Amino acid sequence: MAEPPGPVLVVVPTYDERENLGPALARLHAALPDADVLVVDDASPDGTGVLADSLAADDERIQVLHRPGKSGLGAAYLEGFRHALSGEHQVVVEMDADGSHAPEDLPTLLAALDDSDVVLGSRYVPGGRVLNWPWHREALSRGGNLYSRTALGVPIRDITGGYRVFRRDVLERLHLTTVASQGYCFQVDMAWRAMQAGFRIREVPITFTERERGASKMSCTIVAEALWRVTCWGLAHRFGRGDPPRSNPAGPLPDAAHS
């Protein structure tokens, strides 16, 4: 299997994932021993941040970024991206802490960078699977993907998925300072921006497994935000009213070196 094009940083946002974080990181390093990890914790009441600090003290591959409170998945990933761009990592991975994203799939996702700039772990391409989800959750996910794909006119089958890999220059060139999306709408936003900017996007099948411990963070507010934003983006694109800036040819974020 091909080597990734440089050092890899896996960004793992956490909020109340104390039971899941340790096993997830152990599996990650078993699958990819050289990967660095950045845990971005939103002041988890259950002590996830304390556990992350303990894991980092014993393993130099793990770092922890503490945020003052819960402010959403999108904001956590943006903090992680800024941290990545302040260092030497050439590949940045999004991965959930709850065990739903199998670390064993990561080498295959990284290998797909040979002919792409963004790799999306996909539940809904041939070979992809969803395990142990209740029927209404899978129906909501498939419906959200179908709506997003139709509204934006894109061929991506799993545009809401959160297991994905970016080359560094993608994050450097996208206008990340204009991203305000949260929840799984953040994932739609990032894929849409990358496509608009002309980056090569590839979907690779993964097996998504419902968490065994803890509670999902999905809410009606997250779904409503996604529907509203995707509708606005789709209308703006179709009627030529202009989209938000999609790329930054000048290079990295201005504040990337100050995280």
Results as ranks from 00 to 15, higher is better:
residue 112 A to G: 03
residue 79 E to Q: 04
residue 109 L to N: 03
residue 176 L to A: 08
residue 15 Y to R: 01
residue 106 L to G: 02
residue 87 G to S: 06
residue 22 G to F: 06
residue 30 A to I: 07
residue 236 A to D: 04
residue 202 R to S: 10
residue 134 P to R: 13
residue 120 L to S: 09
residue 181 S to L: 12
residue 168 R to K: 07
residue 206 I to C: 04
residue 29 H to F: 13
residue 107 P to V: 01
residue 127 G to K: 00
residue 151 A to Q: 11
residue 181 S to M: 12
residue 172 E to K: 08
residue 6 G to W: 04
residue 168 R to W: 04
residue 228 W to K: 11
residue 105 D to E: 12
residue 131 L to H: 14
residue 85 L to Q: 14
residue 7 P to V: 00
residue 148 S to V: 06
residue 150 T to Y: 10
residue 45 P to Y: 02
residue 38 L to W: 03
residue 148 S to L: 09
residue 166 F to W: 11
residue 30 A to Y: 04
residue 27 R to L: 13
residue 59 D to H: 06
residue 231 T to G: 10
residue 75 A to K: 15
residue 171 L to E: 00
residue 197 A to E: 04
residue 206 I to N: 02
residue 144 G to L: 13
residue 238 R to N: 06
residue 197 A to G: 07
residue 204 V to N: 04
residue 137 R to T: 11
residue 185 C to Y: 02
residue 151 A to M: 15
residue 249 P to M: 09
residue 34 D to M: 05
residue 144 G to V: 09
residue 93 V to S: 00
residue 55 L to F: 09
residue 57 A to T: 11
residue 146 L to K: 00
residue 126 P to T: 00
residue 190 M to H: 08
residue 47 G to Q: 05
residue 242 G to H: 06
residue 212 E to F: 06
residue 226 A to D: 08
residue 31 A to Y: 03
residue 67 R to Y: 06
residue 16 D to E: 15
residue 45 P to M: 01
residue 90 Q to A: 14
residue 159 I to T: 05
residue 168 R to C: 07
residue 142 R to M: 14
residue 33 P to I: 05
residue 79 E to W: 04
residue 160 T to E: 13
residue 154 V to E: 02
residue 195 M to R: 15
residue 65 L to I: 04
residue 213 R to A: 14
residue 58 D to R: 15
residue 239 F to S: 06
residue 216 S to Y: 09
residue 147 Y to P: 00
residue 77 Y to I: 03
residue 24 A to Q: 15
residue 119 V to L: 12
residue 173 R to H: 14
residue 86 S to G: 15
residue 74 G to N: 03
residue 244 P to H: 10
residue 112 A to V: 02
residue 118 V to G: 03
residue 81 F to A: 02
residue 156 I to Q: 11
residue 194 A to W: 05
residue 69 G to S: 12
residue 28 L to Q: 07
residue 89 H to W: 14
residue 26 A to L: 08
residue 27 R to S: 13
residue 14 T to R: 01
residue 84 A to F: 08
residue 126 P to L: 01
residue 212 E to T: 11
residue 13 P to E: 05
residue 259 S to T: 15
residue 196 Q to P: 04
residue 249 P to F: 08
residue 216 S to E: 07
residue 172 E to C: 10
residue 16 D to I: 03
residue 98 D to I: 12
residue 16 D to R: 12
residue 135 W to N: 11
residue 147 Y to E: 11
residue 257 A to N: 04
residue 160 T to G: 02
residue 246 R to S: 15
residue 112 A to Y: 03
residue 130 V to D: 05
residue 28 L to S: 07
residue 130 V to L: 12
residue 125 V to M: 03
residue 115 D to G: 05
residue 21 L to R: 04
residue 170 V to K: 06
residue 207 T to S: 02
residue 246 R to Q: 11
residue 122 S to V: 08
residue 246 R to N: 13
residue 233 W to Y: 15
residue 168 R to M: 05
residue 122 S to G: 09
residue 130 V to G: 09
